[in-house]
């Protein structure tokens, strides 16, 4: 589970060196937009060296690769898979066929490296109208697909929409991608907030993403990581309410009661499920002791 995923430019030696000190749950080492076309070869080798030397043990390791149809994607996959990242992030994914094509290349690389099948997962980046409309089939296309990720900048441009801080133009895409991911039973991540100087704006945007059902959110700047983590961390109030809910339910079961209520409100199954989820997250984050 990741609350935050931090983008790190793949050709920046200095940023790679300290990528894991900003508190991000996931790191996205970027070979795509952050790397100029003439520097793809350099970035691959730099990322290779950084992963082998630094390892980034505390974080979920993700490598963003160039889209299908570019001259870089095969080399990206062939060179990155041996590094055993948790996830590769294919870009501009528009259909289930795209995932299958990527997955085949990944499988070949795994085989060549002697890695077990499905060592490397995928988190497709949906950033086109086609990708959003095909979100459910993409989510279900391959067992490698562990999560979906929304990219609002390219999407807005594809939609001929105006990108705004409030995000009305991506409301449908957000709803759609969350729906598809949850229907497929996988995680889903929100697009980064792009103004590095607007802390309040970030907080609002991250709170909205959590309220919409996203698992977490990407960050393009280390400055955003703490705010995103906070937004996706259950608050002490949420945790204590969840504990109360579970206590009331146990009590009800012990007494053989059919229906139970807490502070005058019926506690039904969705509320119990949500409480379990909150506590599970709290345990994962080390905020609560207990088994998962």
């Amino acid at each position: 589970m990741m609350r935050s995923m931090l983008f790190v430019p793949g050709n920046s030696a200095g940023m790679l060196l300290n990528a894991d000190v900003h508190g991000a749950d996931g790191l996205i080492l970027d070979l795509e937009d952050a790397v100029a076309p003439g520097e793809k070869d350099a970035a691959r080798r730099l990322v290779q060296g950084a992963v082998q030397t630094l390892g980034f043990p505390g974080a979920t390791l993700i490598i963003r690769i160039n889209p299908l149809g570019t001259p870089y994607v095969e080399e990206d996959i062939a060179r990155m898979v041996p590094l055993k990242p948790h996830l590769l992030m294919p870009t501009k994914v528009a259909s289930a066929e795209d995932v299958t094509a990527i997955s085949t290349l990944v499988a070949q690389a795994e085989q060549k490296t002697g890695l077990p099948q499905n060592t490397v997962g995928l988190i497709p980046l949906l950033e086109t109208a086609q990708g959003i409309e095909h979100a459910l089939e993409i989510a279900r296309s391959d067992p490698r697909v562990k999560a979906l990720f929304l990219g609002a900048e390219d999407l807005s441009s594809d939609l001929q929409a105006v990108r705004s801080k409030e995000g009305a133009e991506i409301a449908y895409a957000r709803g759609r991608i969350v729906m598809a991911a949850r229907a497929a039973g996988i995680d889903v991540y929100d697009t980064p907030f792009t103004d590095v100087n607007d802390d309040d704006g970030l907080q609002q945007d991250a709170a909205l993403a959590r309220a919409l059902g996203f698992t977490g959110k990407a960050a393009i700047s280390p400055r955003h990581v703490a705010g995103i983590n906070a937004a996706f961390t259950p608050s002490p109030g949420e945790i204590s309410y969840a504990r109360e809910v579970l206590a009331v339910i146990e009590e009800g079961e012990r007494l053989g009661k059919g229906a139970v209520s807490l502070r005058g409100k019926m506690i039904d199954k969705p509320i119990v499920d949500r409480a379990r989820k909150v506590l599970q997250t709290a345990v994962l984050l080390g905020l609560e002791r207990g088994a998962l």
Partner: peptide, 23 residues
Amino acid sequence: GAIDCTIRARVETALLRGAEVQA
């Protein structure tokens, strides 16, 4: 102030760019 793996990556990239065959 590059660390070893960065030096190796940059040298390798430069050598391959300057070599007969593009890799």
